[in-house]
């Protein structure tokens, strides 16, 4: 099979590391060769963060570069646009509708581009907007935004739903399993 490339992007502190851990574990259990690349350290302090997840028969590079991503799952609108250059033509963006202003916008040195998702659509990108925060709150915690977004990705990947549920059970602390399973169900069935 051809290697599938997924990027998980967002703002440091939003919980993208758990999402990539969950996805990675699931893909290994499914028998794929997997590489996941994360960035720890300084950019976790509110900076733009990106995690690469690649799976297939044999994966060498842990990175995804321009024109290679099949899916971008973004925790924040502007970050979806920032990393869109990594998309393949015909690639898909799943984006949480949350807006977090970066410092240059906060201090008035730049403006937050309001119609940036439409711009991507005009370029032929399939953009799925998800109000993941509302769904997460419905499930019981704003922290479940990552699971809601993973559920939307799950709809598009060829892995049975119950395998995702299994992987959630293995990836989160026992007391949060129920809440995260609910978030996954709400996200998946939207």
């Amino acid at each position: 099979m051809k290697t599938v490339n997924i990027m998980i992007v967002g703002v440091g502190g939003q919980g993208s590391l758990l999402a990539s851990k969950l996805l990675g574990r699931l893909l290994v259990d499914e028998g794929y060769d997997v590489k996941v690349s994360e960035v720890h350290g300084m950019s976790q302090r509110g900076g733009s963060v990106v995690t690469y997840v690649r799976y297939g028969d044999r994966v060498y590079s842990p990175l995804i570069t321009e024109g290679e991503a099949d899916y971008i799952v973004s925790f924040e609108k502007l970050e979806a646009a920032r990393w869109a250059t990594c998309l393949k033509p015909g690639g898909t963006v799943i984006v949480n509708t949350q807006q977090i202003d970066p410092m240059p916008v906060i201090i008035g040195k730049a403006t937050y581009p309001s119609d940036i998702l439409d711009e991507l659509r005009a370029k032929g990108v399939e953009v799925e907007e998800v109000d993941a925060l509302s769904t997460a709150l419905e499930a019981g915690s704003a922290k479940a935004v990552n699971i809601v977004l993973m559920a939307r990705l799950a709809k598009r990947l060829d892995i049975p739903r119950e395998k995702w549920i299994e992987a959630i059970g293995k990836s989160v602390a026992p007391k949060f399993v129920e809440m995260n399973e609910k978030a996954f169900a709400l996200g998946y069935d939207k």
Binding site: L63, G67, L78, T85, A110, P113
Partner: peptide, 29 residues
Amino acid sequence: SQKTISAAFGIEDAPTVRADTEAPARPPM
């Protein structure tokens, strides 16, 4: 990255998508 290798060996870049509006930087803070 793989781009470094393909550039050095003259392998053509994959076509890509680019928004017209530049995304403002998001430095850590």
